[in-house]
Design a protein around this nucleic acid. Sequence first.
DNA 1: GCCGTTTTCGGCCCGACTGTTTTCAGTCG
Length: 578
Amino acid sequence: MENKEIAAVLNEISQLLELAGENPFKVRAYAQGARTIEIQDRPAVELISKGELARIKGIGATLSQQITELVRDGETALHRDLQKKFPAGIREMLRVPGLGPKKVKELLERLSIRSLGELEYACHENRLVTLPGFGEKSQQNILRGIEHLKKFQGRFLFGEAYPQAQELLSSLVGHPAASRGAIAGSLRRCKEIVKDIDLVAESARPGDLMDFFTSLPAVEEVLAQGTTKSAVRLRSGMQADLRVVAPGAFPFALHHFTGSKEHHIALRSLANDRGFKLNEYGLFRREKPVSCRDEGDIYRRLGLDYIPPELREDWGEIAAAREKTLPKLVEEKDLRGTFHLHTYRSDGSPTPDQWVQAAREKGYGYLGLSDHSQSAAYAGGLKAEQLRAQEAEVRQANGAQKEVRLFRGIESDIRPDGSLDYPAQELARFDFIVASVHSRFNLTEAEMTRRLVRAVENPYTTMLGHPSGRLLLARDGYPVDMDAVLEAAARQGVIIELNANPHRLDLDWRLLKKAKSLGLRIAINPDAHHLEGLADVHYGVGIARKGWLTKEDVFNTREAGEVADYLEKRRKRAGQKR
DNA sequence: GCCGTTTTCGGCCCGACTGTTTTCAGTCG
């Protein structure tokens, strides 16, 4: 059983214990244990065999026993009993905003409601109003919450939410009552999926700013309005929350509402140890406020280096900030070019000349064009006989100007047996090759792992495209032993793509740290099919930062000449190996 | 349930808002 699966079970145990009315600290201990086991570099089975499991901070005797039981039997008695007591329908009710374990328990015990469907029915029957702790309002809110769950599932892509947040923010900071404003929440931390938009603003006239916010054209419905907090539902279906604070409190509010919760728990605990108290209004030493101009000051007063928002996941960043070993994260301005762009020849729209123009506008020195290969018939993959024309076209675009170097590549399908999609003499002619899986996702994990390992062992493979194959909010990645694939890529010097398309953001940031530790280079590629898609590298950079990557870890921060030399050398070596 | 350079027992981040109450519990971030 993998660490991730173990974590999922522990998390569920935590939720169910909460439903059972257990000690909240016990509940938290299980949730914390889940996180701890998930971020271990080594599999639990190894930790158990070496007797190191119970020595990990946050895993004590009981959790260690539960994990051991899980690894040995694939399940635990505790988990099984809890599941029997609280079936899936009950757990689903916890996703309704405003419903927590206590209220779900009440619904269960007093009205025998055991699923979302039953809950909706009970609301329509007006049966919640008489329940203690509930009333007319909460019944309506629950109905609306169910409606919303059904409609949107309450989750949105980073790339969907970000432009909306930007627009709201620019409206807000343009208002005379606002002196400062910022995006906060998981969006600021660059999570690939977000639940809502959090905004923080500073104002001496909060009432005016709130009136302005709740009447913006993007707002469909005002869910709550006060002088410190307002919440609205946007026409897009997203919820946006605005917090307004008085001048001086802004850094603390921004920090607080950026999260994550786990980061705050760890940080406040450290603050306590050092004689401080930290909350959303300030940093205090013996009840006396400590002045901070910005978030950097907050960390410095606590004896830490500044921790960028993307890293605030309680994933080792606090220890690194204390030891002054935080990485200097890559920035968008470090990128010198990018790869994996489609043209009109397969399923994209731009011509090579148009891509050159787009690169120029972005200040890039090079672009790597890679249309689909012949097996991807659905995407207009290039037949072998079309390759000469493509070659000539790229050569011509390069001859016509000197500012932007176009590299001629292909996004080669990885066939089910792991081979690439053209004969070697064709592969040898490309400047670079992105190898990706686009079909036959239904192989077993062992077969898929073999397939990907074989693909990265092909001497012509330059990079592995969207390694997991996931489509966020739509499709999980195929089953594959990603560790084995990454290790093979590291042996072969194959670059790993961080596909920056908001639907993919693949390789996942949780694995980037692992890839980095293997010495792998990462290419932040937009996988763009239209000119506007080039801007998606922004999301890729956010995820790269979240994965602790520096400029040096990212392949396309190199200058055009260096990239050209690298690709040429690799191509020569591949020719010799063949 | 976990943890300990004051502690092996007694803490565990902390405050606002909502809807329900008539002083507060539950939820949320």
